Every structure is written in structure tokens, then in C-alpha cells.
Computed example of a mutant assay.
Amino acid sequence: MSSNHLLVSSALTAVLAMGLGASAHAETGAKEKCFGIAKAGANDCANLSGSHSCAGLATVDKGADEWNYVAKGSCHAKGGRTLDEVKAGARGGK
């Protein structure tokens, strides 16, 4: 009986660990930087202009060089621009 209990416990642990690993992987690949949507004091990290290098230091709402992480593919719906679009705009592309 003890060996059956150990076998079931081990199998359950393995299944749970696989599920947690898959969800962690999905979260890391499912985000993108979205520029122009951050509220003052609520940006996720350094801005593009280099005037600060930390989260929470945005001084205005929706600053063009301030960003927040959002679910990949949802940036435009929030009124923002992706990093590629911001870079293209800096080169005169968009």
C-alpha cells in the first residue's frame, strides 16, 4: 500500500510540475512593450529618451517614450505603439 501511495504522489507531483512550467513559459512569451499608454508614476521601466532608468518614474500620462508590458497583440487596442513602431517612427518610417 505504501509503494502505491508513493507512486501516485510522484505521478501527481510530476503532472503539476509540468503544468506550472508550461504556464510560466507562456507568460514570458506573451508580453510586449507598449509605448504611450503608461500613466504618470506607473511605467514599467526606463524610458527611451534616457531621462530616467527605473519603473514608476514617468512624470506625465501617456508619454510617447514611456511604456508598460501588455499582452502580446493588445497594444493597439490600448491606444499604444509597439517598440518596432516607435523605432520606425524615430527613423522617419511611421
Rank of each mutant, 00 (worst) to 15 (best):
G93P: 05
M1V: 04
G92M: 05
Y69N: 10
S51Q: 13
M18G: 07
D61H: 10
G73V: 10
A46F: 14
L12T: 14
A88T: 09
V15L: 02
V70T: 15
C75I: 10
K78V: 00
A14T: 13
G89F: 03
N43S: 07
S49Y: 05
G56P: 10
G56H: 07
V86M: 01
D84P: 05
G19M: 07
V70I: 10
S51T: 15
L16D: 07
S74L: 00
C34D: 01
S74W: 11
A88V: 04
V86L: 00
N47G: 10
V70G: 09
L20Q: 13
S10N: 13
A42F: 13
C54L: 00
I37F: 04
T59A: 04
G36W: 06
L48T: 15
S49K: 11
K72H: 07
L83V: 02
L12H: 10
H5Q: 14
G50I: 07
Y69D: 05
A88N: 02
C34T: 09
T82C: 00
E27Y: 15
A40Y: 11
H76F: 08
G79M: 03
M18I: 15
S49W: 09
V86A: 03
G63H: 13
G73Q: 03
S3M: 01
G29I: 11
W67G: 02
T82D: 00
K39N: 06
E66I: 05
C34V: 08
R81L: 00
N43R: 12
C75W: 11
F35M: 01
A22H: 13
C34S: 04
R91D: 00
V86R: 01
T13A: 03
A22D: 10
V8R: 02
M18P: 02
A22M: 04
G41Y: 12
M18Q: 11
L57D: 12
D61P: 06
A55Q: 08
R81W: 03
N47S: 02
A46E: 07
G50K: 09
D65M: 02
G80Q: 00
A38L: 05
H52R: 09
T28V: 13
G79N: 06
G73W: 08
G63Y: 11
A26S: 13
D61N: 15
G89N: 14
H52P: 05
A42I: 06
L16F: 14
V15K: 14
E66R: 08
A64H: 13
W67Q: 00
L20H: 11
A17V: 09
G80Y: 06
L48A: 02
G29T: 15
S2D: 03
L12S: 14
A40M: 07
A26V: 11
L12P: 06
L20S: 14
M1G: 09
T28Q: 09
C45D: 14
A55I: 03
K87I: 06
A30M: 02
N47H: 13
L57Y: 12
T28H: 12
T13Y: 09
T82N: 01
G93K: 14
T59K: 13
L48Y: 11
